[in-house]
Design a protein around this nucleic acid. Sequence first.
DNA 1: ACTCATATGTGTAACTTTTACACAAAAATA
DNA 2: TATTTTTGTGTAAAAGTTACACATATGAGT
Lengths: 225, 225
Amino acid sequence: MSKQSIKLTVDAVVFGYEEGEISVLLIKRKYEPFKEKWAIPGGFVLNDESLEEAVQRELQEETGVKINYLEQLYTFGNPTRDPRGRVVSIAYFGLVRPNTFKIFASTDAAEVAWFNINELPELSFDHKDILELAIKRLKGKITYEPIGFELLDKKFPFSDLEKLYTTLLGREIDRRNFRKKIIGLNVLDELNEKVSKGSGRPANLFQFNQKRYFQLKKEGIIFEI
Amino acid sequence: MSKQSIKLTVDAVVFGYEEGEISVLLIKRKYEPFKEKWAIPGGFVLNDESLEEAVQRELQEETGVKINYLEQLYTFGNPTRDPRGRVVSIAYFGLVRPNTFKIFASTDAAEVAWFNINELPELSFDHKDILELAIKRLKGKITYEPIGFELLDKKFPFSDLEKLYTTLLGREIDRRNFRKKIIGLNVLDELNEKVSKGSGRPANLFQFNQKRYFQLKKEGIIFEI
DNA sequence: ACTCATATGTGTAACTTTTACACAAAAATA
DNA sequence: TATTTTTGTGTAAAAGTTACACATATGAGT
């Protein structure tokens, strides 16, 4: 039996949301292979760091992003997925509020940019597969975990939440029923603050109450939309 | 930056079901570390095989089991999880019908045995965490994917299915409502065969129709219990 | 300051789904 | 042949989901 020589990387599909558009963070590779091609940020895992640490480090290095919500997505191990040899990649899935920092390219990245998930460029390696799986997971997960709030401002008008769900679910939602349902879940605090964007009646602001969510979860009450 | 020296293993949590009990397949380790301790079957990934091939090969080698249903569970990468050094393990989750083969120990395994998931021995490495996650996944997944059928005989009386769900969900089910629901899903074929085990009215046999399931899935009709 | 356009906020009735519940039929056993 | 055991089946109440329209609060235009 030949000695194992497999390299390990982590990759992070980071989603952001702004004004009705779901975007994903990509970098333009500075080096071969796939030099000048767009790719999901990521890189080799160091010997003594955990996988999550590796993801956070690579994201910080390449893009300047500090992640808000992070979870493991899937491990891609096809023997031919990397032309350099056997490289297994553990893909993560992250959510951020894009307006809370400035992105910048460095180390392996020549450029960093947000791409609308419906207008993606050609991607390196098997990153198209990874991204598709991540999109599927995001769209699926918002109906049974309250991860959507990680994409919105801490305080948000109800219409933002509604628009996010409309976008992710890809269909119209009845405004009244949606509001009833969400309010009924009992995980939102209604604040005494109003915000008015342009014309129209000013909206009340809401805030996700994570503590209450965990409490309810512990009691076996499930979040479901 | 020091050169990466991380080893990669796969581990497989294999579940079986018989007579109202969910069991998991474990091996007793023949070598250090954790010599003579029970562990989930698995081993090092070879350079040129896919991760799934590695799982199937290790299972075959160590236990004689050919898996029926296999999916990736999670990747465990805590830097201290293996005393030999940095070993990242990609855990899989499998389902089999235990009565379709004989298990036997070989290569790294001194013994192989089925353990009821409620009466587990002490386990090696972080295998307790892996197993707990797998059990959680199994219990969760049966409500929205028809994987329960992978644990039953191809032809089964309705009561077998009901008992499986009772066991996995950990609560009583209304027999009539359950039957109505499952029949309503339209994925079972009712056969013209009866089986009688002991006393009582003989039961009709049913069979899962995978083709119909995929058809319905494609049409957006979801399996849900 | 008045009118118009725009976005927010709210209740009820029809419909669908889920739950609760009991007894007859077919076979084995005593 | 009476008793026990397991299978097989319908209906009514309750809960949840869906469809649907108008008043309110602001900004913009005149």
